[in-house]
Design a protein around this nucleic acid. Structure first.
Lengths: 219, 219, 219, 219
DNA sequence: CATGAATGAGCCTTCATTCAT
DNA sequence: GATGAATGAAGGCTCATTCAT
C-alpha cells in the first residue's frame, strides 16, 4: 500500500496523485482506457482481488503502461472516484422554502437516491469495500457525508424554528442518523440483497423519516 | 482467500472449519494462545494487514504451529468470532409485555448497545472490515442481523395491533431501517470518530426511534 | 539499492544488516551456503551482474530462502566481507625495532602482500568494483586504508627521528602515497593483467619504497 | 549492457559506436545537447544510476530522440569521453633534454596534473566508476595509461643511461608504479576526500618521486 | 505436538527500446 | 528529425504453506 487514494478534503485535486497527465491525444485515450478498465475490474472483482495486470489486460494495454499514468492501484482508484464523484451519493434533506410540501420533497429525495444507488450498486459496493481498506478514501467519504449532514441539519434547524419539526432533537445528530438509516438500507437491499420492493422501500423510509423528525406539513 | 470463515446460518458449527480440536492440554493451550493473539493482531492491524507470522509471533509460538489448528487466516478469524459471539451486537427492540414502559426500554436498549459498541470499538471496526472482504462472514453477519430484525419486527407488529405504533409501517422494513440507523451511528461515532457525547447520542437515537415508530407509551 | 553494506567505522558490526541469525544448525548451514555461493557468483559475474536468483541457484536453495537471511544483495555482500576481513589487504610499513633490517622487512611485507593479492585477485577485483558502487563499503574501505596508513606513518616518523628516513617528507602523506603505489600496482598486474613477473614486481616496489623514503639500513 | 564503450586502442574512432552523425544543424544541436546533458547527469548521479530518461530530460529532448544518436548509455558515455579526451589525465614524466631542471619539471608536472584532477574531480570519479563497470572503457583507459607509462619509461631509461637515475630500477615497472602513486593520491584526496593541502600534496609527491628514482639534478 | 527453515507461486515495478504520429 | 507513449522482458520480494527434525 502506498500513497493516499484521495486528498481528504479536496476531492477536486486528486490529480496530484497521478504520474502526470498525458500530453498527446493518444495518451489521453490510453489513460482513459485504463480508468475505464479499472472501474470494470474493481466492480467485478473488488478492489482487493484486482491485480494491476487484470486492469491493463482489460484495457488492452501493456502492463507497463499502467505506470505511465498511475503509481498504484490506489491512484487509479482515485481517478475512478474522480470520474464518478456525482455518484458518491449521500441521502440528505434538501433546503426548502415554506411552500414546499415537505413530505413530497423527502419522498422525491429518497426515490432519487435509491434509484441511483440501485443503478450503481456495484460501485456502491466497491466504495464500501475500499472505505474499509484505505484510510484516505474513508476520510474523504466521511467528510463528504458530514458536509451533506450539515446541510440537512440546517434545514432541520429551520423547520424546528418554524415549529414544524420535533424541537427536542439535536439537528446534526438527527441528520447523521437519518441519513445513515437511508444509506444503510440502500446498502442492505442493493448490495447485500435483502429483498424489499422498491416502492415499499421508498414509502417506508419516507414515513420513518417524517415520523422521526415529527414533521408537520403546514406550520 | 480459501475456505469460508463461518457456516452462514449456524454460528455454533464454525468449528467444522478448523483442523480438529486438540486433545492434549498443551494443544488446547496453544490453540487458545493463537486465537487470543489473532484477535489482538486483527484489532491492531486489521484483518488484511495481519500476517500469519504476526499472529504466531504475538502468540509466542512457531509459525508452523498455526497450521496445527487452523487452515487459514479466515479460520482463526472464525474462531475469534466464535469466542466473541455475544459481542456481535445488533440493535433491536426487545420483546415486551403490556406493562413495560416502551420508551424506557428502548433507551435502556440503546444505552446498553452503544456502551458495548464503544467498549469493543476495535472489534466492531474489524467486523466491518472483514464483512467487506469475506463473503462468508458477511453472510453470517447479515443473517444474524435479519434474525434480530425479525424479533424487532414481531414486537413492532404487536405494538401496531395494540394501536401503540404507526400502523402504516411495514414492520420488517422498519425494524431493519431503525436497527441500521442505530448501528451506523455507533460506527460513525466510535469507529470513524464523529464527535457526539454519549448521552446526547443515546437520547437522540431513542427519540428518533420512538418518533419513527410513533410509539405511544400507553394504549 | 537499499541499506548500507557495512557500518562505516565498525567493521565487526555488519551483522546488524542481516535479518536475524539462524537458530538451528540447519539454518546456519543454509546461511553459510548462501554466503559461499554469493562470493562465488560475485567473483564470477561481478556484483552488478549477480542476480539474487543466481546466488540461490548456486547455493542450491529456493529463491525465497535468500530473504530469510539477507535483505538485499548489499547485505550478503557485507556478510561475504565479514568472512574475508583479513583478506582486505592494505600495504603498510610494519612497526619495527632498531635491529630490524628495514629493507628486508619491507621486501617481506611486499612479498606477502602481493602473494595474497594474487591469490585473491578475483576478490580484490570485486572489492574494487563494489567500492565504486556502494558508498558504505567505500567508506569502510577508506577507513581501513587510513588506519593502515596511520600505522605506517608512525613508523616513518620514528625512522625520521632516528635519522634513517628523509626528514622532509610528511609521514602521513608519504604513507598514503607509498601504500597507494603498491596497492595500485597489485591491481594493475593481478586484476588488469599488466604483465610483470612476480619477483621483478617485488624487487622494484621494494626499491622504489626504500628510495622514496631514503631509508638507511643503519643509523 | 550492450556494445563496447570505446574502441580499445584507437580513441579517435569511437564515433563508430554511434548511429551516424547528424547532417542537419538541428540534428547536430540535439546530439550535442544530449552529450552535454549526459555528462552532467553522469557526474551528478554516476553512470549506474543515470537513466536514459534522466539524460533526455536534462537535455530537454524527447526520450526517443536519444536513440537517433546513440545505441545505449555506453555509447553516449563514449561520446562524452571523446569530448573530454584531454581530461583523461595520466601522470607521467615528460621527455626532457639535458638542460632541464628535472625536479622543477616533475613538480610542474605534478602541479598541473593535480590541478586538473581537482578541477575535474567529478569526471575523474565517473571514469573510476565506469572503469569498474565497463570492460571496454577499462581497456581503453589501461591502454592510455600504458602509453603514458611507456613515455615515462623511455625518459627514465635515458636518465639511467646518463647516470642520473637509479640504474637498478626496471624503467617500465617504475614508471607504472610512480604514475599509479600520483594517480591514486589524486583520487584519495579529490574523490574520496582525504584532507591534504594542495601544496603539501605537490611537494610530497614530487619529493617521493625524485627520491624513488634517485634522481640527480646534474650528471 | 512444536519448531522454524525451506519453498516457490504470484504480483509488482522499472526502464531500455521501439514505433506511430 | 522529434515526440512521447507503448511495450514487455527481467528481477525483485513477500508470505502462505509445507515438512524435516
Amino acid at each position: 500500500m502506498t500513497g493516499p487514494i484521495v486528498d481528504g478534503g479536496d476531492p477536486g485535486a486528486a490529480a496530484a496523485e497521478e504520474r502526470g497527465l498525458p500530453r498527446s491525444a493518444r495518451g489521453r485515450r490510453t489513460r482513459q482506457a485504463v480508468i475505464t478498465a479499472a472501474r470494470a475490474v474493481f466492480e467485478r472483482d473488488g478492489f482487493l482481488d484486482a491485480r494491476i495486470s487484470d486492469i491493463t489486460e482489460e484495457a488492452g494495454v501493456a502492463s507497463g503502461s499502467f505506470y505511465t499514468y498511475f503509481d498504484s492501484k490506489e491512484a487509479v482508484f482515485a481517478a475512478v472516484v474522480e470520474e464518478v464523484q456525482d455518484q458518491m451519493l449521500h441521502p440528505h434533506l434538501a433546503a426548502m422554502d415554506r411552500e414546499t410540501d415537505i413530505v413530497a420533497a423527502i419522498e422525491a429525495n429518497n426515490r432519487a437516491y435509491l434509484m441511483e444507488y440501485k443503478r450503481n450498486a456495484k460501485l456502491m459496493a466497491l466504495f464500501e469495500q475500499v472505505a474499509q481498506i484505505d484510510d484516505d478514501f474513508r476520510t474523504m467519504r466521511r467528510n463528504r457525508g458530514y458536509a451533506f449532514a450539515e446541510r440537512s441539519a440546517r434545514t432541520i434547524r429551520r423547520l424546528q424554528e418554524e415549529g414544524r419539526a420535533d424541537p427536542e432533537l439535536d439537528p446534526m445528530v438527527a441528520a447523521l442518523a437519518i441519513g445513515g438509516m437511508v444509506g444503510r438500507m440502500a446498502y442492505s437491499v442493493y448490495v447485500l440483497g435483502q429483498k424489499v420492493p422498491f416502492e415499499k422501500l421508498v414509502q417506508t423510509l419516507t414515513r420513518l423519516w417524517v415520523n422521526a423528525l415529527q414533521l408537520r406539513v403546514d406550520p
